[in-house]
Design a protein around this nucleic acid. Structure first.
Lengths: 117, 117
DNA sequence: TTGCCATATGCCAATATGGGTATATGATGA
DNA sequence: TCATCATATACCCATATTGGCATATGGCAA
């Protein structure tokens, strides 16, 4: 078949999940507590189906969990997955702290210390 | 005109820029020093045009800078933009540190302390 | 069962994206 | 100016995404 493979992984990756602004809003809002889709959609000004779709993506990557309560379904935050993103960006901390002009010098130092990253 | 607007912002947002695995690889590699596109492509096993395209995205969101050296163009890291991502995810830190079972209780506490997030 | 409320899906339209290959553009040195 | 190396673009293809709307599904209560 040899289908041309047009793009890499996607909605199974936390980085991608939080690349969508609205999904970030959802996560931020959920910090203040669980909510049913409807309320969430209302608070963020999106349609219910739209919110449902975003929640599905978030659920698939594990950033939210849901539990039944009567005929409602409450969505809650499970931020554990954000930790990897925090750590990944943290790996660049010294670079944004270093004065930009000193960056290259710093890099040179690193290279001498231990060869091979 | 009323074009249906099928998707939100995109390649002008750091979150989106780092959603691509290969772009994250590029950033990680650049921590060890500046490089011309060709070398970068070789080290990461991608074609030169492919690497150029990713670098363009990274440059547009400000995560890399480039400078001319002879007929080469060296790309270097400018991690300052990653700081916002680090901080955003950091805003969830207490949630991934809390025992999951205690989360709801914690949220309730927050709500009582200060109304309005 | 039958309604009804809450939420998830299906489908379509409009775009965004990534990758590949060929080619344009830039800069340098003879 | 010309040949050449380095890098960016243009185009095309296949697929991923998002949004809107209509509709299916699920769970409850009479």
């Amino acid at each position: 078949m040899m289908m041309l493979m047009a793009r890499a992984a996607t909605t199974s990756d936390v980085f991608n999940a939080i690349a969508e602004p609205q999904r970030r809003e959802i996560l931020a809002l959920l910090r203040t507590g669980e909510r049913p889709v409807t309320e969430l959609a209302r608070e963020l000004g999106m349609t219910q189906p739209g919110a449902s779709k975003h929640l599905r993506v978030l659920r698939e990557v594990g950033l939210v969990r849901d539990r039944r309560v009567g005929k409602q379904r409450l969505y809650g935050l499970d931020a554990r997955g954000l930790r990897s993103v925090h750590e990944w960006t943290g790996g660049f901390e010294r670079f944004w702290n270093e004065s930009f002009d000193r960056l290259d010098a710093y890099v040179r130092e690193l290279k001498q210390e231990g060869q091979e990253e």
